[in-house]
Nucleic acid binder design. Structure first.
Length: 275
DNA sequence: ATATTCCCCTGGAAGC
DNA sequence: TGCTTCCAGGGGAATA
């Protein structure tokens, strides 16, 4: 589910409800996730400290509390966050519940348990945890363009689509939006990354920004798991041009869309429109 | 250093 | 209907 747009949609939905709220108590499932943390550790670090900010870096959600410390959440493949009345019924895949001072709970539900939950101390308020320092540029921040993209690529000849999935090259792009951006930019996914010309890199950077912004406006892409914290689904799936459409006609030229697997991840593209 | 493959886990869809 | 196989938005470790 969660690539940059989905995490950003969740962030925007949570921010107005969480900032200023005070986390009081924590419950965990005790099930093993990619990263998990005992309730006592959460309470020691976070309890009683008002939420100062809800930020995002790449696909990580950063809930900072006063005192320069943060709850860091990664939704993995199937993670959902919901803000519910504390009396609301739970689910077998709830792995964390945080009770706030307004009687509501933030619940993290994750069937596949590829998600991560951690507590991190920041060097200063407003900072980003040290373990995220190596991430690539944020594509929706000022200054992201073809030149920045080419600098991030360097001399690497790995297929461009594989590189777009590398969070240390561009932060937040996942399989859906890599495929969509390459189609919109007219660039074949198997092109050696360093072979992109300056105009091609410009087009790709623009396409990345365009598709991410468009998806955020639609609430993200719900294929199955993604939910906005109020429980509703994102509406961008119907706007996808090529993802998941191998064999169907290209929306641009009508030719059947091709399918290849690149380092284990499904890729579709139009052999006529992308070069 | 770089490039695939495997694996973590559940559940939904498709095939037989 | 029921069982089996395959596949999925991520990403990190292990392996060439």
């Amino acid at each position: 589910m969660p690539e940059l747009p989905e995490v950003e949609v969740v962030r925007r939905a949570l921010e107005p409800f969480l900032v200023g709220r005070v986390p009081l108590s924590f419950r965990v499932s005790g099930k093993k996730m990619r990263e998990d943390v005992p309730a006592a550790v959460l309470a020691d670090a976070l309890a009683g400290r008002p939420v100062a900010a809800v930020r995002r870096r790449a696909k990580y959600l950063i809930v900072e509390v006063e005192g320069a410390r943060a709850l860091v959440i990664h939704l993995g493949m199937s993670g959902r966050l919901a803000l519910l009345d504390s009396a609301a019924p739970g689910d077998r895949h709830d792995h964390l519940a945080i009770a706030f001072d307004d009687g509501r709970e933030l619940r993290f539900n994750d069937a596949r348990r590829f998600g991560r939950v951690g507590v991190h101390y920041l060097s200063a308020p407003g900072g980003v945890p040290e373990f995220l320092a190596g991430l690539g540029p944020e594509p929706l921040e000022r200054g992201f363009d073809g030149a920045v993209l080419r600098a991030a690529i360097g001399a690497r000849r790995t297929p461009i689509k594989t590189l777009l999935l590398d969070q240390n090259v561009v932060a937040g792009v996942g399989n859906i939006y890599a495929v969509e951006a390459l189609f919109r930019a007219g660039v074949r996914p198997d092109r050696p990354a360093a072979s992109l010309s300056a105009p091609e890199a410009d087009a790709l950077a623009r396409a990345i920004k365009t598709v991410l912004r468009a998806s955020i406006r639609q609430g993200g892409t719900t294929l199955r798991d993604h939910r906005i914290p109020d429980g509703s689904e994102g509406r961008f799936a119907r706007k996808l041009l090529v993802y998941g459409r191998a064999g169907q006609p290209c929306p641009n030229c009508g030719r059947a869309l091709s399918f290849v697997r690149q380092s284990g991840r499904a890729t579709c593209f139009c052999a006529g429109c992308q070069s």
